[in-house]
Amino acid sequence: MTAAPTATAKRLIITCMKNEGPFILEWVAHHRAIGFDHMLVFTNDCDDGTVELLDGLAERGYVTRMDNPYQEMGSGYNPQKGALKYAESLDLVRNAEWVLVSDVDEFVNIHVGDGDLDSLFAATNDPDMISMQWRLFGNSFRDSYSDVLLTQEHSHCAPKYCPAPIQAWGIKTMFKTAGDYVAGAYDRIGVHRPLKRRIADMPNWVAGTGRPVPEDMADQGWRFGIRDHGYDMVTLNHYAVRSTESFLVKRDRGRVNHVERDQGLAYWMRMNFNMEQDTSIQRRLSATKKELTRLKRLKGIKSLHEAAVTAHRSKIAELMAREDMKIFYEEITSPKLTLLSRHLNFVSRAQFNDGPDAISADLIDRLEQVPVL
């Protein structure tokens, strides 16, 4: 177990990582450019340069990296929930003003003012909690991995009105701490929102629309619905699949929360939305690139990033040499699934759960007649 961190933060992101090396710098640069000042990262069994790159950033105070303690915490804890439980005990977390639990494939996309946290806080009248809902971004028809910026090259996504699958309107929640109460109005830090309310009243909690979160979510709920969905002020861009080749690495690596669930054909179909294009996050691209350039100029950081890119490419080659992964790759790049990614509004919630085999040949025949815009 690593030592407790001594860094301080005002606006903190907590995350878990396993073999995310090639994608770290863009994620850090983007979030620093919009106003987050530190990231607490729990790592687990990495072998692609993730730890080395994070430690390089940690030496300069940009992140704090810790070995994930979940295996030492007894049964009942998966990597993500164990890390969050441990994080509650850290002064770094308890002394922060704002905390967000977010993954390295999730990018906060603010639509008001200058597109930064100060603008979001001003537009929402400085609430205690802000929930931002996912907008699912697909592979943008990029099968091969290349070292590009996700926020620049991946713009194909789900439509704003997307009641299915249930993941489409999942949320992550940024919250204020409150003195001795690390989760503010709640007792525990949760994956999607704080848990176990400790106050009688509904917290001052707004959605990405800027409107109050419904009171029936006070004690439970991890997604919005038809009545409260929306992206007026802030979106959480969720690049769950990235390129098709990178998705192979993600599937092989496994999950940090629902560890027992395979990221197979059904997962690919419900997360690979290529129905519309949204480039709104690119208003911050110049600031992100400026911060990225600054990070790469730090001694050793550029070479550590390049080493992670090389390791990622090597892992892709290794997986593509396996017969099972080769077959899986051919399935997810098939004309059928590529076509479906353009028209996922025709897929029911049950079909999303069951996967591509539940889609009738008749539907595919009809979709093939739809002109590509």
Results as ranks from 00 to 15, higher is better:
255 R>N: 08
328 F>E: 04
77 Y>L: 05
255 R>E: 03
97 E>Q: 15
297 R>Y: 07
296 K>M: 14
158 A>Q: 06
16 C>P: 01
346 F>A: 04
173 T>L: 10
110 I>T: 01
286 S>F: 11
198 R>W: 09
256 V>Q: 14
111 H>F: 07
24 I>L: 14
348 S>G: 05
364 I>H: 04
20 E>T: 03
84 L>D: 02
209 T>L: 00
219 D>H: 09
90 L>T: 01
195 L>D: 11
101 V>K: 06
291 E>Q: 13
246 S>R: 03
333 T>K: 10
241 V>L: 08
47 D>I: 11
373 L>Q: 15
49 G>F: 10
275 M>W: 00
115 G>A: 10
314 S>A: 15
69 P>I: 04
361 A>S: 14
363 L>V: 04
355 G>S: 07
315 K>Q: 12
246 S>W: 08
248 L>H: 01
295 L>S: 05
358 A>M: 02
12 L>D: 02
310 T>K: 15
221 G>I: 08
332 I>N: 02
110 I>F: 01
188 R>E: 13
60 R>S: 10
235 T>L: 01
258 H>M: 09
211 R>P: 00
326 K>W: 09
150 L>Q: 11
222 W>L: 12
266 A>D: 10
97 E>W: 03
63 V>C: 08
308 A>N: 05
256 V>Y: 07
271 M>P: 00
256 V>H: 12
328 F>H: 04
101 V>Q: 10
175 F>S: 01
88 E>K: 10
114 D>F: 07
127 P>S: 10
231 Y>T: 04
335 P>G: 08
155 S>R: 10
99 V>C: 10
260 E>T: 12
341 S>C: 07
72 E>T: 14
249 V>C: 07
177 T>L: 05
160 K>T: 02
54 L>S: 11
